[in-house]
Amino acid sequence: MRARVEAAPKFLNLLQIRFPIGAIASIGHRISGVLLVLSLPLLALALDRSLRSEAEFAALRDLVSAPWRAMLLALLVWAATHHLLAGIRHLLMDVGLGSGLSRARTSAWAVIVAAAIVALIAAARWLS
């Protein structure tokens, strides 16, 4: 009996599960959070450089001249925007604002779409 229970399979193939929109917003919150933590050392360095001299400050602005860096920055813009908006959504829901299912669905959509749009605008501006 024991051996059988231990060998029991589990169904947990995430690709075969249909995730509600709230779950998508949530995993986005998590991924963007990790990206932001990873970018924290860069942010601290950027702060230092921005204060060193006129030239260093200007060099920071020029970072986006390389397409790959512009892409990376646009990704971080997505992460910051998504994390910020999803965070505000959660704070409001914690005090009972918009925590009903239909409004939570709408706000999850809004967060996902808004963050994507902001990131696209940033990418378009820097890449053109």
Binding site: F19, P20, G22, A23, S26, H90, M93, D94, V95, G96, S99, G100, L101, A104
Partner: peptide
């Protein structure tokens, strides 16, 4: 993490995520 998957699927139309919110409060 207030994902609300629970409330999405409850066949009785209940909201466990709301109960959890109230417990935290």
């Amino acid at each position: 993490r207030t994902i609300m998957n629970c409330t999405e699927v409850c066949p009785k139309g209940l909201s466990p995520s709301h109960a959890i919110e109230r417990i935290r409060q």
